[in-house]
Lab assay of single mutants.
Amino acid sequence: MSIQHFRVALIPFFAAFCLPVFAHPETLVKVKDAEDQLGARVGYIELDLNSGKILESFRPEERFPMMSTFKVLLCGAVLSRVDAGQEQLGRRIHYSQNDLVEYSPVTEKHLTDGMTVRELCSAAITMSDNTAANLLLTTIGGPKELTAFLHNMGDHVTRLDRWEPELNEAIPNDERDTTMPAAMATTLRKLLTGELLTLASRQQLIDWMEADKVAGPLLRSALPAGWFIADKSGAGERGSRGIIAALGPDGKPSRIVVIYTTGSQATMDERNRQIAEIGASLIKHW
């Protein structure tokens, strides 16, 4: 067993022997301040990774656009098919120029040779490549099948209805392509620590998230040296922004954090800054 596999296998073990965790309302004060600064709703939840206990939450059962955070769930569904012998990570998928959609920095470079399922998941999570996500959605049967996968996990809230990039439209009061912070946090925890996926697939999923290259201005910008984070960000229309993450000190994750916002007129930089400040408060009061 590799060191990384050992780390993920012992996530519940280490967490069980940690000192009790206590909620700190100071972080919620910052979440509410972010709402004021952005002029928009902000949803927040913080779960203990081992027990699933909610440590703090704000608007945990209000719907927010998922945006690209759905790509972690998508690759979880792909990995479940791999575990069941219905898919192979090494299978190569070929596609054409007509398949390319807006923001496809990886797939646009491989029109000639195609990409493997493993490479597509890596591109979808680490670079948020939209064509990679659409190609992977095709392998599982489309958005409705991802929703069905989530329902089978016990998540009857999260739903995907459309493809990239239309799913980022974020129309107010439109339930399409949305989740709730509580539902997303619980589902992410199941994917990373539950028995739904094999140990190898859980490790692969967290490795992809740990290698995320496009979430630097968010929670990662607030992390002290030595902290662990595996995350996936999302951005959408109407001032929408979000991030889902597993993080913790001492090089291992111990909490799940989900943050979503929508309806702001603020710039992307300002949305990023507010999420980073929430992260800084979380870490300060850990």
Rank of each mutant, 00 (worst) to 15 (best):
56 E>S: 11
106 V>N: 07
111 L>H: 09
10 L>Y: 09
284 K>R: 14
282 L>A: 09
140 I>H: 04
50 N>C: 08
8 V>A: 11
10 L>R: 05
42 V>N: 04
232 K>Y: 00
274 Q>D: 04
170 A>I: 09
176 R>F: 08
141 G>C: 05
194 G>Q: 12
68 S>C: 01
177 D>E: 02
187 T>C: 09
281 S>W: 07
20 P>M: 04
244 I>D: 00
76 G>F: 04
273 R>K: 15
243 I>L: 11
24 H>R: 13
141 G>V: 04
33 D>L: 13
10 L>K: 05
12 P>T: 12
258 V>A: 09
61 E>A: 12
253 P>I: 10
95 Y>R: 01
145 E>N: 15
51 S>R: 07
113 D>V: 09
86 Q>P: 05
228 F>E: 04
141 G>K: 07
190 K>G: 13
13 F>C: 10
88 Q>H: 15
238 R>D: 07
193 T>W: 10
68 S>H: 00
256 I>M: 07
137 L>V: 08
248 G>W: 02
226 G>C: 09
86 Q>T: 13
76 G>H: 02
10 L>D: 03
81 R>G: 06
172 P>E: 13
178 T>P: 00
90 G>D: 14
237 E>P: 15
192 L>I: 15
219 L>F: 09
223 L>P: 02
147 T>L: 07
75 C>W: 00
72 V>G: 03
264 S>A: 09
196 L>N: 15
284 K>S: 14
91 R>K: 10
267 T>E: 13
196 L>V: 14
202 R>C: 09
1 M>E: 01
184 M>A: 07
141 G>A: 06
219 L>N: 03
189 R>H: 13
284 K>H: 10
202 R>W: 03
24 H>F: 10
215 A>L: 03
8 V>Y: 15
225 A>L: 12
223 L>Q: 05
48 D>I: 04
10 L>G: 08
93 I>K: 04
138 T>W: 10
162 R>W: 02
149 F>I: 10
164 E>P: 01
73 L>K: 01
169 E>R: 11
119 E>Y: 03
140 I>L: 10
188 L>C: 09
28 L>E: 06
47 L>A: 08
181 P>M: 02
7 R>D: 07
130 N>L: 01
45 I>M: 13
211 A>S: 13
20 P>F: 03
108 E>T: 10
49 L>A: 09
176 R>Y: 07
210 E>S: 10
214 V>N: 07
119 E>C: 04
110 H>R: 10
2 S>N: 14
55 L>C: 08
53 K>V: 13
128 S>C: 00
102 E>L: 10
212 D>W: 02
271 R>Q: 10
254 S>A: 15
282 L>Q: 06
145 E>W: 09
168 N>R: 03
6 F>A: 07
139 T>Y: 07
